[in-house]
């Protein structure tokens, strides 16, 4: 009995100890500063509510997350739908194009957008060559740049869960609808679209949650006046303002966990969600 019961603990134990020491303890110790500094208090959180900088940054973060989520949903759904109907070869090629950016580091992808949107970047040069503009447009370091780059980076997270749900829909269902007199659009709207909702919901939540925590992209292509929550946290750490940084971290983490908690409750989302995370 002892041998059988203790063996799993001996195998999982080293990893748990390692992660407790080098991950869980550091993060929790840091988060604890939000309620222990300068003495046990919730005052730091109370301050947040009246803090203009925080409210502005939080607003920017939410707005960006909404725009990026909507953008990825509207661009991602058609791709997922087309992907689910493709022949194997075409589907493989499409999947590679979707997965290549997925696996390219966020840094490199953000850099690509700097190259595209810079003062001497592809877009400005092209517009100038066409004599459409005289002076380069300010594209980089704007909310537009952040939104575009984040949509680009997060699109695969929307496409994959939707495609995986669409692929599981029995192809005879839209055919049956057509047999009963539905137009192709009608069959899609009344049969395929409702059945694919769990995937769309999973993708939406995933993209929204990931957007909230974005740091590298807004730092590189965003403007100094439109900070995201992660950037504000990093800034406060640079200022060694740990209690404030910890407060902001707790807020960001709480928003993330609440949204992810929703995925566990909503029916059908859980399975699609698993396929969505890389």
């Amino acid at each position: 009995m002892t041998q059988a019961a203790s063996a799993p603990v001996l195998l999982v134990g080293p990893l748990l100890l390692f992660m407790a020491a080098f991950y869980a303890f550091p993060v929790l110790a840091m988060l604890a500063r939000s309620v222990t500094d300068p003495h046990p208090t919730l005052a730091n959180f109370a301050h947040l509510a009246g803090d203009g900088v925080f409210l502005h940054v939080f607003g920017t973060t939410l707005r960006t997350a909404f725009i990026v989520t909507a953008g990825t949903l509207f661009l991602g759904y058609p791709v997922a739908l087309a992907l689910s109907r493709m022949r194997p070869t075409a589907a493989t090629i499409t999947l590679v194009i979707v997965l290549l950016p997925f696996w390219t580091s966020v840094l490199v992808r953000s850099y690509a957008w700097m190259v595209l949107l810079g003062r001497r970047g592809l877009i400005n040069e092209a517009l100038r060559a066409l004599d459409l503009i005289d002076a380069p447009l300010r594209l980089l370091n704007t909310p537009l740049a952040v939104n575009l780059a984040m949509i680009h980076i997060l699109l695969p997270y929307m496409i994959l869960p939707i495609a995986s749900v669409l692929r599981q829909i029995d192809p005879s269902l839209p055919r049956a609808a057509a047999g009963m007199g539905a137009t192709p659009w009608g069959a899609f709207r009344q049969v395929v679209l409702p059945l694919s909702m769990p995937g769309a919901l999973a993708g939406t939540l995933l993209v929204f949650v990931l957007s909230l925590g974005f740091y590298i992209t807004p730092a590189l292509v965003g403007g100094p006046r439109d900070l995201m929550l992660s950037q504000l946290i990093a800034q406060q750490v640079d200022l060694l303002n740990w209690p404030y940084a910890a407060c902001l971290s707790v807020t960001l983490l709480a928003a993330t966990l609440v949204l992810l908690g929703a995925t566990q409750v909503l029916p059908g989302v859980r399975g699609a969600f698993r396929l969505g995370t890389r």
């Binding site: 992660m19 991950y23 303890f25 960001l252 993330t256």
Partner: peptide
């Protein structure tokens, strides 16, 4: 419980993990 701890780095925002580790390290 063990799976929650082990898989949580996938979920916890990168900046929170990073400054937590920075804080202790």
């Amino acid at each position: 419980a063990a799976a929650a701890l082990i898989l949580s780095p996938l979920i916890v925002p990168g900046i929170v993990v990073a400054i937590g580790i920075y804080y202790a390290f």
